[in-house]
Design a binder for these strands. Sequence first.
DNA 1: GACATGATTGTTGAC
DNA 2: GTCAACAATCATGTC
Length: 147
Amino acid sequence: MKGGRSKAEDNGNDTKLKSRGAKAGKRKAKAAKDPNKPKRPPSAFFVFMEEFRVQFKRENPDNKSVAAVGKAGGEKWKSMSDAEKAPYVAKAESRKNDYNKSMKAYNKKLADGENGVEENESDKSKSEVNDEDEDGSGTAEEDEDDD
DNA sequence: GACATGATTGTTGAC
DNA sequence: GTCAACAATCATGTC
């Protein structure tokens, strides 16, 4: 469980703050650098958080702090059993498969771009990615399996 | 008006 | 193998 690192750094918030600060700071820079790069897939915890946030908001409509939601979500996540986490893990894996496909298309696009067909392929690749995205939604696993 | 920050865990990518 | 960065969220504060 590498996530424990976060806990270790909980004491040294500096590192985490730096990370987040860097993330926030790089957010734009990085986005400008690789706007087409697929975003990282949510982990099981984040998939869980998507639902937890909604529930948390309903139970705590006055709470406007995302930090509080994160804290509560983290505590609940730790209190959950593997069986309870299972559906979220499954969803996360599904997202991961999709991410892998997107990364393949992204890497391919990069290779094409280096070959000297950046602009043209850029648009084309987009279509490809889109096509894969739409088509791949249902056949993602099959495609992976097929491969 | 636009961007950074606050907390959480997991996963990925890089070294 | 280890560590840093990043993924979502959104009201609020700062510039």
